[in-house]
Design a protein around this nucleic acid. Sequence first.
RNA 1: CCAGAGGGCCGGGCGAUCGCCGCCGCGCGCAAGCGUGGGGGAGGAAAGUCCGGGCUCCACGGAAACCACGGUGCCGGAUAACGUCCGGCGGCCCUCGCAAGGGGGUCAGGGAAAGUGCCACAGAGAGCAGACCGCCCAAGGCCUCGGCCCGGCGAAAGGUGAAAGGGUGCGGUAAGAGCGCACCGCGCGGACGGUAACGGACGCGGCAUGGCAAACCCCACCGGGAGCAAGGUUGAAUAGGGACGGCAGGGGAGCAAUCCCAGGACUGGUUCCGGUCCCGCCGUCCGGGUUGACUGCUUGAGCGUUCGGGCAACCGCACGCCUAGAGGAAUGAUCGCCCAUCCUCCGCAAGGAGGUGGACAGAACCCGGCUUACAGGCCCUCUGGCAUU
RNA 2: UGCCCCGUCGUCUAAUGGUAAGACUACGGAUUCUGAUUCCGUCUAUCGAGGUUCGAAUCCUCGCGGGGCAU
Length: 92
Amino acid sequence: MPGFVLLVRPRGDGDDTPGVGFTVSKKVGNAVARNRMKRRLRALARAAIPDRGIGGADHVLIGRPGGNDIVFAELAEQLDSALARAAKKVAR
RNA sequence: CCAGAGGGCCGGGCGAUCGCCGCCGCGCGCAAGCGUGGGGGAGGAAAGUCCGGGCUCCACGGAAACCACGGUGCCGGAUAACGUCCGGCGGCCCUCGCAAGGGGGUCAGGGAAAGUGCCACAGAGAGCAGACCGCCCAAGGCCUCGGCCCGGCGAAAGGUGAAAGGGUGCGGUAAGAGCGCACCGCGCGGACGGUAACGGACGCGGCAUGGCAAACCCCACCGGGAGCAAGGUUGAAUAGGGACGGCAGGGGAGCAAUCCCAGGACUGGUUCCGGUCCCGCCGUCCGGGUUGACUGCUUGAGCGUUCGGGCAACCGCACGCCUAGAGGAAUGAUCGCCCAUCCUCCGCAAGGAGGUGGACAGAACCCGGCUUACAGGCCCUCUGGCAUU
RNA sequence: UGCCCCGUCGUCUAAUGGUAAGACUACGGAUUCUGAUUCCGUCUAUCGAGGUUCGAAUCCUCGCGGGGCAU
């Protein structure tokens, strides 16, 4: 069970820089748990998106319950594989 | 050394990089802001909201008291206060000891001879105690000499129950019974000790007063209400209110007089009808008030150290320190070393190597408690076991 | 932030401090050629932990969960 869901949508406005957004609902926990998840997701995105993100597209990371129990390296792998699959779909 | 019980303390440390939220400088900029430097940034429970306060507003008022409602409940002390804490007393339980006595735990621990109420089932009887059956047995009667009948002083034994109106032993008696005696328990008085709760030498009394007040209640004491979303200052756009001044006098039809349709204020009389006046725009001023901004907002029953007082809770003197104050609201991520945890391998062992990986939880005006959650570690006291001296 | 209320079978409701009751559901059986209906039977619960009491679903305390109200 991955710790998040990744949505990717090309903007198509000619700008090549990627955009990133985060969504963590109340299902995840109280405000502290939600903020912690947002901070961890932000750290993930900062490491991966500039290299492996899709240029000119908006990325939305949706936090899921239990995501705070997954170690950071595993989340990073999940983000890499999700980005790779998204890149294939965008290319088609 | 191991195990158990009780209590107290800590709640990973150091460094690096990249980030987040306030604050203070400097530079640029009209400003928004941008760049740069410095410094600060969660807890023992920040939680539950179960109690107690500070603070603020409201209400009442000479000060308070009474009623209702709610709470507290051995005594003394601590404290701003408490349902909290400390010390003592008493009851109960556990344990050591032959005993005297010691140690530990625990208690919502005022009043049941002020009144009311309840005590299911079982049982003869459950509150004015013991109807009835059965039991024990003297006198009297019958008689086959073993029993039967009559009678009921008496309440031991059996049986029921959570509880049956003192217990054990001896005497006594026909059999019994505090009927008498000894010890224990209980009640009353009480020298004396203690601030008090209470303890209690000694004396008197044959025993009276079952339990439940976390049932109503009685007694004593405490509590006015609401809460920082309290409260205060300021106050945009739009709409609306009041005063003054100026221009004008609702809408429709009609050239017009006039007619029709409305609304508001005042006013006359019975639900209805009538009378008078007004309705718009502009300007100036005043007041209310929403989104918002600022404040309250962190120096406080604060923290640390030394000394002193006290058995202790705690208190006092001196010195030092400043330690988040933001809007639904920031304190994170990664890496290295160390400290604990667990796993595997090597080794008789001490130890070594590799890997793993850190509980419960997250400030929202602030304090004092209680309760609940919690990986792991440290310390103290008591008890038991094993080993050694 | 503050205040109030409620937790009983799978569901909806009962129960003066004294054996936890009923309806629906589920399951099994009977009736029927089969199914429905009907009849009979069975299973299943006091939110948790302490305390008061001889005895607690009921009384008290703490905790857990749910709902509502004010602003």
